[in-house]
Every structure is written in C-alpha cells, then in structure tokens.
C-alpha cells in the first residue's frame, strides 16, 4: 500500500438513487455522507461543513459511478462503452466480472474493477488502483463479515464464498 501500512476499514451503505446519483453513507469510524450527483461529489461529515468537487477530478469515482449505475441499471451498452469486459464463471455458480477502463486517462489511476459474485448475488467489488493499492467493497450480507484487520488473501477467500 502506498501510504498506509494496514488497510482502512469503513462500513456503511452505498445506495443507488436512480440516474447517475449514488449516495455513500459511512457509519464507522466516522459518520459521513457523500453524494455523487450531476458530475459533482459533495461530502458532509459530522461537525464539518459540506465540501464538494467535480467528478472530473476523481477518476476513480467516475469509474465507480459508471460501473455501478450500468450494473445496477442493467445497462450493458453503457458498461461496454466505458469498459473492456472479461467474465469468468465456475460450475458452482460463482462468477467474476473484470472491467478495464477504456479511457486511458482513467486507466492511469484505476487499473481495473473486479466484481465477484455467486448466482444472482454480487458479493465483492475490487477496485485495483494503478499505483498498486486496492479498495475492496464487501457487499450485502458479506459486509458484516469484514474482519477488523483484513488482508488481501482473507478478503479474497471471503469473496469466493469461503
């Protein structure tokens, strides 16, 4: 990891509010709400004023929005437009979807996004940043199983349904 020597764990809710609007509500370690809407990111943190910046300046988030909205909305053509898609599945119904950004400027910060799932359920989302860092989201019920001091390996096992 580039700046930290152990992973940072936050928990909360990520909600798709339709259209291009995503809301990320973090409960731990600090109460914080971030909202991505109309190309702008606005952050509201406990006891602090609102901060906002353009989505253009945070390519990771743009990718996140693109992939989330396309995935959740079932918009395959939008997904294909933004990413090169690779799918893998096994006989037990586990699958993983690797999205590689087509935009070179975006690819300079986000190398790829991998979504692991099983059956109709998406379990994890891995965002591989270009500098080697990884952000892992455990989705749905799995979120409760997040270890206090996770390692990449432990998370990979969790996501594979282990």
């Amino acid at each position: 990891m580039q700046v930290l020597d152990r992973p940072l764990v936050v928990s909360g809710e990520l909600a798709w509010l339709g259209g291009d609007t995503l809301e990320r509500h973090v409960q731990k370690p600090h109460e914080e709400t971030a909202r991505i809407a109309q190309g702008k990111v606005s952050q509201q943190r406990e006891g602090k004023g609102e901060r906002s910046f353009s989505l253009e300046r945070a390519p990771q988030l743009k990718v996140l929005v693109d992939s989330f909205v396309a995935l959740l909305g079932g918009d395959a053509s939008r997904l294909r437009k933004a990413f090169a898609i690779a799918r893998r599945g096994d006989v037990h119904g586990a699958w993983s979807l690797t999205l590689t950004p087509r935009d070179l400027a975006v690819a300079r910060t986000v190398a790829s996004i991998r979504i692991d799932g099983e059956g109709r359920e998406a379990r994890c989302m891995w965002m591989q940043e270009a500098d080697g860092d990884v952000a892992v989201d455990l989705l749905g019920d799995l979120a409760a199983k997040m270890p206090a001091a996770p390692t990449r390996e432990a998370l990979a096992t969790l996501c594979k349904g282990g």
Partner: peptide, 18 residues
C-alpha cells in the same frame, strides 16, 4: 487525513499526503 483517505476525495489526496 485518514478520514479523507476513506472518503471519495482520497484520490485527490494520495499524492500530496507524504
């Protein structure tokens, strides 16, 4: 800064932090 890193603004910050 740690809060910032866990926030959507993390990408803006990482290069500046050290």
């Amino acid at each position: 800064r740690l809060d910032d890193l866990s926030s959507p603004a993390a990408g803006l910050l990482k290069d500046l932090l050290p």
